[in-house]
């Protein structure tokens, strides 16, 4: 499969990216974008975070222990949970368990099906497969949950006349919020749908590019990419759906009343 081994990148070569960095900083300075500081911080974080992750993964791959792999997945989930709640920009502690459940279930089910049913990796925790795949799934699940959650809130505010009319006609909160819920879940899925439509035509996805650069046959790489696209769509829909359904408990009382205070800032 590995037609030729991937060419290693030396520290000197990495240092040569400085040429491009200087050009970007120059552009920012010339056009007074005032982004030099932020850009350099971004560059610094990219170097630091990725090198660090590289060392950690190298270590974990070497030890090949199931508990270390699970620990890494747990850290990923916790970080995604924190970042996801942060993006919703609401000060409500009840969002944490909701985000955690939607990621745990939405991403968890997808990870299980992909690694244990479709790929059947051996051993079940094979870090070289499980960690990168889980990372992609969790990241996309977080996007789904935040996009869906935020859209649900704004749809409920926008459609408050519709929701209240349905409540007044004696319908329950679930029926009254039906259109808002649909819109929210659809909105969460749209970026994924769009990328599925043009995948391979407009651009080659990052993972596939990486595999090809690493020397894999394009035929193998596309098969992985197909699985990745499907698993991303699954993770996004599951977690967006779960988040929206759970948020209903925040936005409606059990007496089918809208909690406006929770919908507004």
């Amino acid at each position: 499969m590995m037609a030729e081994p991937i060419a290693p990148i030396g520290a000197g070569q990495l240092g040569l990216t400085l040429v491009l960095i200087v050009l970007v900083v120059g552009l920012s300075y010339y056009e007074k974008l005032a982004l030099e500081g932020e850009y350099l911080l971004g560059v610094g974080r990219t170097f630091l975070q990725l090198l660090l992750v590289g060392y950690i993964l190298e270590y974990v791959f070497g030890l090949n222990r199931w508990y270390l792999v699970l620990l890494i997945l747990a850290v990923m989930l916790a970080a995604a949970c924190q970042a996801g709640v942060g993006r919703l920009r609401r000060r409500d502690l009840r969002l944490y368990p909701m985000m955690a459940i939607s990621l745990l279930v939405g991403a968890g089910v997808t990870i299980l099906v992909v690694t244990e049913v479709i790929l059947r990796i051996e051993p079940w925790y094979h870090p070289r497969y499980l960690i990168p795949l889980a990372g992609m799934i969790i990241g996309n699940a977080m996007n789904g949950a935040t996009l869906g959650g935020e859209r649900y809130r704004s749809e409920l505010l926008l459609r408050s006349a519709e929701v209240e009319t349905l409540l007044c006609l004696g319908f329950g909160a679930r029926r009254a919020a039906e259109n808002a819920r649909r819109q929210a879940i659809a909105a969460a899925l749209i970026p994924t749908l769009n990328s599925m439509m043009v995948v391979g035509v407009v651009s080659l996805p990052g993972m596939m590019t990486g595999q090809i650069l690493a020397g894999a046959s394009p035929l193998v790489a596309v098969r992985y990419q197909i699985i990745v696209m499907i698993m991303i769509s699954a993770a996004v829909s599951f977690s967006a759906y779960l988040m929206v359904v759970m948020l209903s408990r925040l936005y409606f009382t059990r007496h089918h009343q809208i909690c406006y205070y929770a919908l507004k800032k």
């Binding site: 519709e162 209240e164 009319t165 007044c168 006609l169 004696g170 089918h256």
Partner: peptide
């Protein structure tokens, strides 16, 4: 039960939807 009540005590909002 609020759902049953709302069918007996109907409210027509200012902004018709």
């Amino acid at each position: 039960d609020p759902l049953r009540l709302r069918r007996e005590v109907a409210l027509v909002a200012q902004e018709p939807y």
